[in-house]
């Protein structure tokens, strides 16, 4: 009798869509659900930044240098209360952080999406064609992964210059290789399954088999790893911007804000560097926690 109930429960579990299972898995974990909520709030704040911030930190005309380095909570000449203080240019830190969040998220997401696309295609081609194509692509991947990513990105950016688009390209170039390797491994397993043979038996075009059979069945683990890699892309961007080769000064990301406030840390004006720092930590930590839970739910091993 109990055995019957157990089998029933198992069947029910097997019949619940994976999506629902994962959602339940996240909801039942306070850290994961907390992280999900934090991410939702941060993304919302970033999206709504132009509407909710008291000041446009990129519009130099609206800044007043007289208001520079005001402590959190002080009210400036323009009548705005700066809840998180101002920086050396008299920029409202709250506004700057929200706009910085926008830049950081934009760079992190687009770079990850780009790297995912390049890596998936490369991995898929390597797995499907094998032989020389596989050898060539995988040697490039080995070569890319052999260098510390920060070093490659630094060299790249110092030769092509600063800019949001350039940072995205640099991060894409250092991150695609890990997706390629994962994708290849997953596709190699799927390729041996009989449904691929069935597709060959129907004389379906290679492009069709790759796109509609191999890709959807291999990409699961890669997507999960990508969700964790958004955090590392954001960290990488912050590091590059902190080092002064990332985004331009006129469009500061969180990393650049930290760099700007860095010199005032020891003079007691902690807020210029610490608040963007807290925002960055919150964002990266939430992304990592959620990504990690996703990884466990889908039972994927890390790169």
């Amino acid at each position: 009798m109990t055995a019957d109930i157990e089998t029933f429960a198992k069947t029910a579990e097997a019949n619940t869509p994976l999506r629902m299972q994962v959602l339940r898995n996240i909801r039942n974990r306070p850290t994961a659900s907390g992280a999900a909520i934090a991410i939702a709030i941060l993304v919302l704040l970033a999206l709504l930044a132009p509407v909710i911030t008291p000041q446009n930190p990129y519009d130099l005309a609206s800044l007043s240098v007289m208001d520079n380095r005001l402590a959190p909570g002080e009210t400036g000449m323009t009548g705005i209360t700066y809840w998180l203080g101002t920086d050396a240019q008299g920029r409202d830190m709250l506004s700057a952080i929200l706009y910085g969040l926008r830049t950081s998220l934009l760079v992190g997401l687009t770079a990850t999406a780009g790297a995912l696309a390049i890596g998936s295609v490369a991995g898929l081609l390597a797995a499907h064609f094998g032989g020389a194509v596989d050898a060539l692509l995988m040697r490039i991947v080995d070569f890319m992964l052999g260098f510390p990513s920060i070093l490659v990105a630094l060299i790249l950016l110092s030769s092509i210059g600063r800019g949001v688009d350039k940072v995205v390209v640099a991060i894409m170039l250092v991150q695609w290789a890990q997706y390629a390797r994962l994708m290849r491994a997953a596709a190699l397993v799927e390729r041996r399954k009989e449904y691929i043979e069935a597709a060959l038996n129907f004389g379906l075009p290679t492009r069709h088999i790759l796109l509609f059979h191999l890709l959807p069945n291999s990409i699961g683990s890669v997507l999960v790893v990508a969700s964790i890699s958004v955090a590392s892309a954001i960290t990488l961007e912050a590091t590059l911007s902190f080092l002064g080769v990332g985004v331009p000064v006129t469009q500061p990301s969180l990393g650049l804000l930290i760099a700007n406030g860095f010199e005032f840390l020891l003079s007691g004006q902690y807020w210029i560097a610490v608040f963007p720092g807290i925002a960055l930590v919150l964002l990266v930590m939430s992304l990592n926690l959620l990504g990690d839970r996703l990884r466990r739910s889908f039972n994927v091993r890390g790169p």
Binding site: E194, Y195, E197, A198, N201, G203, P216, N217
Partner: peptide, 20 residues
Amino acid sequence: YLLKVQMVFQDPYASLNPRM
């Protein structure tokens, strides 16, 4: 020829694309 000569596979779990 490919279409006229069809195959029925051994493993009914691996021979159908799970995403379709």
